[in-house]
């Protein structure tokens, strides 16, 4: 069991460019915007690099940057846990189609961008962060497993940890199999729960399975189309509200990650 504070939150999905916009939708203060589109624009990345960067990298860097800014954390010093169910399905589609049609035409840049830890690598290059950085997947439990890992690292080091979870919209035949029909990314800066810590205070514990946390109505459509949104929704709803309460995220067939919001 670990107590910590969520000192900063980042979020991006088409139509909701940041956490304040998402929180307004979650609390009912605002409706989902009608027009949705565009790509995230992390300021850490020069415009020419942004044009070439995969969507997964842009989304991850944008929300990581937002969360660090909100937390007042120096990105260069923070350990990080990056997580994605699929990596980057568009690159996956490109790689598989190129391998079928003419492997000699494979783009070396697309190849090195195809590693699951590409967003983590670009983040460390952009920020100069040399602390431990990991990149993980856990199927439908990816968000919960990544949050669990971030809390474990926080408890181990006593230092802040940046959690970044994302999946970009799929395309091609592999996109159809994956069923990832929307892009979504969110990031949390977790800090030790010391006196004066800013942000929402949470207690995390792994518990044997119970009833999973409900997905809030405002995120239901998104959660159906993106596994990271589905995994994060109960916690985001808890963080958006003023009240204390709990969110329960399935972690494995026998365990849930239970998050209690503390006063």
């Amino acid at each position: 069991m670990t107590e910590f504070a969520v000192a900063g939150i980042g979020l991006w999905t088409p139509g909701l460019p940041d956490w304040p916009a998402a929180r307004a939708v979650l609390t009912g203060a605002a409706a989902w915007p009608e027009a949705a589109g565009g790509r995230p624009t992390p300021s850490l990345m020069p415009a020419n690099e942004r044009r070439r960067a995969p969507d997964s990298v842009l989304m991850a860097l944008a929300v990581a940057e937002q969360a660090c800014a909100a937390a007042g954390a120096d990105p260069a010093t923070v350990a990080s846990v990056f997580a994605s169910v699929f990596g980057d399905l568009a690159i996956n589609d490109y790689m598989c189609a190129t391998l079928r049609d003419d492997p000699a035409q494979m783009s070396p840049t697309k190849f090195h961008n195809s590693v699951h830890n590409a967003p983590s690598g670009y983040w460390s290059i952009a920020t100069g962060a040399m602390a431990a950085a990991t990149s993980l997947a856990a199927g439908r439990e990816t968000f919960a497993a990544a949050l669990h890992e971030a809390v474990v690292q926080l408890a181990d080091s006593g230092e802040p940890v940046l959690l970044v979870a994302y999946d970009a919209i799929g395309c091609g035949p592999v996109g159809a199999i994956a069923g990832c029909r929307a892009s979504f990314a969110c990031a949390l800066v977790l800090t030790p729960d010391t006196a004066g810590a800013q942000g929402s205070r949470l207690r995390a514990a792994a518990a044997t399975t119970g009833a999973a946390g409900a997905v809030p109505d405002a995120l239901a459509a998104l959660a159906a189309d993106n596994p990271i949104a589905a995994g994060a929704a109960p916690l985001l709803a808890l963080l958006a509200g003023q009240a204390t309460g709990a969110a329960r995220l399935p972690l494995s067939p026998a365990l849930d990650l239970v998050l209690d919001r503390l006063p």
């Binding site: 699929f86 699951h116 830890n117 950085a133 997947a137 856990a138 199999i177 365990l255």
Partner: peptide, 25 residues
């Protein structure tokens, strides 16, 4: 068709049901 294929299989084959991660760095 996803990176967790490995750990997902190991979880089913072993019946080990604690935390389960695929690290892909």
């Amino acid at each position: 068709h996803q990176p967790h294929s490995l750990a997902g299989f190991l979880q089913e084959a072993s019946g080990w049901h604690g935390p389960c991660l695929t690290i892909s760095t």
